[in-house]
Design a protein around this nucleic acid. Sequence first.
DNA 1: CGATTTCTGTATCGATCGATACTGAAGTCG
DNA 2: CGACTTCAGTATCGATCGATACAGAAATCG
Lengths: 202, 202
Amino acid sequence: MKTRQSGPIGRPRGFDADEALERAMLVFWEHGYEGASLATLTNAMGISTTSMYAAFGNKEELFRKALERYTEGPSAYLARALEEPTALGVTTAILAGAIRTTTRPAHPHGCMGVQGALVSGDSGRGVRDLLVAWRNNGCSRLQERFQRAIDDGELPPETNPRLLARYVTTLAFGIAVQAASGVGRDELQEMADAALRTWPLP
Amino acid sequence: MKTRQSGPIGRPRGFDADEALERAMLVFWEHGYEGASLATLTNAMGISTTSMYAAFGNKEELFRKALERYTEGPSAYLARALEEPTALGVTTAILAGAIRTTTRPAHPHGCMGVQGALVSGDSGRGVRDLLVAWRNNGCSRLQERFQRAIDDGELPPETNPRLLARYVTTLAFGIAVQAASGVGRDELQEMADAALRTWPLP
DNA sequence: CGATTTCTGTATCGATCGATACTGAAGTCG
DNA sequence: CGACTTCAGTATCGATCGATACAGAAATCG
């Protein structure tokens, strides 16, 4: 005989919200915010529009939560890379992580933070601004990491951390575009290896 | 008394098709293919949907013609850059041209070839594939130019022209993303100058 | 002139967009 | 059990999407 624990009142949810959010993230990643219709989303999530609205609010809220999941999942390489002991190690890990994430087989090609809403119509302005902030935040954190390397004496004091961070993120965003164009992982990694041989930028 | 030249039969067009196409290009550039609605387009073009369909076919055909105009207008720096006498001159001109075009005041920020349709829903698949080809074509032409520099003995024979072209276009596409994020022209140019000081890539 | 051809403006088409109202179903309470 | 609360499925909302039908206007023809 099963003892009924005092669970949440009311009818329990008939689906796994975490799994549904993962599916939604993949759809947004592949088609972008405006390119992903509610019909496509809910079909991939395996739930009805009613359930989606009850669980996530609306389409924009769903995207915001999907972006958080992307940041802590496929894009977690960034946070890990920033903890590398050297500036070159950080940069190497960022480029390798960007290449791996944007060219993973059986996953959407490209970066959700870039192609989620690089431009938009009126309805996507909020999400576009969110992604602008997301990208600029990544650049800022990298700049701070380079500043630390300068303070630690690892990088020469005349180094411009802002330009260096802009350079690395520019490469990373460019990699995302190339991946979305179907360029293969090996070619991008060879290119990154060549670029890293010039480290640090004069 | 005006002599009637044998002009085209029927009622003449009441608008400048070239000017209308220019306006459409700017809208596609700013909002992307799917983000630009027919209402927004025709309003900017100053004509009705009927006139647009009669003159350009449909929305996708309008985009294709707008992309041609973009290639021969704002993106013409690429063809000019390829005629620079040295490989370094080519690369310098490409990066400077990309930065100028993607950060021009009173123009949309970013590159139409990147943000026109980096990803899409079902309706934009044709345009997305068109832009994939557009971007890869630019990379291929640059690769051929670098091959010529190798054949001419300007670049060392062990140079990999494919990787080098991929590196430069990756920077250019990354610049387009940064510009769409609001990064300023001067900062991007300083970054490009720093990157060019390492030329050629080892 | 009338016949013919082409372009324009209005009005609207069916499809799809994101978002909800409503009715039961599936649970926890007392 | 019946009262209460929350979730699920259908059916549909008004708005907007891209695209057209239709009638009239403006030109060249014979």
